[in-house]
Computed example of a mutant assay.
Amino acid sequence: MRAPTAAPLLEVDNLRTHFTTPGGLVKSVDGVSFTVGHQETVCIVGESGSGKSITARSIMGLVRRPGRVVGGRMNFRLRDGSTVDLAAIPPDSATYRAIRGREIGMIFQEPMSALSPVHTIGSQIEEGIRLHLGFGARAARERAVDALEKVGFPGARQRLNTYPFQLSGGLRQRVCIAMALACEPSLLIADEPTTALDVTTQANILELLLRLQGELGMAIVFITHDLGVVAEIADRVVVMYLGQVMEAGPASGILGHPRHPYTRGLLRCVADIEGDGLLRAIPGIVPHPLARPPGCPFSTRCEEMMPGLCDTTAPELLAINGESRVRCHLWSSGQPHVTEGAVHG
Rank of each mutant, 00 (worst) to 15 (best):
P4I: 11
E11W: 03
V12Y: 00
N14E: 15
N14Y: 01
R16C: 14
H18Y: 15
V26C: 07
D30S: 05
D30T: 09
S33P: 01
S33M: 03
S33T: 07
S33G: 06
Q39I: 06
V45C: 12
E47N: 06
G61C: 10
P66A: 07
G72T: 02
R73L: 04
N75D: 13
R79W: 00
D80H: 08
D80P: 04
S82F: 01
L86E: 06
L86K: 07
A88Y: 03
A94E: 15
G101D: 04
M112K: 10
A114K: 05
V118Q: 12
H119S: 09
H119Q: 11
T120D: 07
S123T: 13
L133D: 10
F135R: 10
D146H: 15
A147W: 02
G155D: 15
L160T: 00
Y163D: 02
G169T: 06
C183K: 03
L197M: 06
V199M: 05
V199H: 06
T200V: 07
F222D: 03
T224D: 08
T224F: 09
M240C: 11
M240Y: 01
E247H: 04
G249C: 01
A251P: 08
H260Y: 04
R264M: 15
R264V: 08
R268M: 06
I273A: 12
D276A: 14
A281T: 15
H288K: 10
P294A: 10
F298G: 08
S299T: 12
T300Y: 07
E303M: 13
E303A: 14
L318E: 06
A319R: 14
E323R: 15
V326A: 12
T339K: 08
A342L: 12
A342P: 00
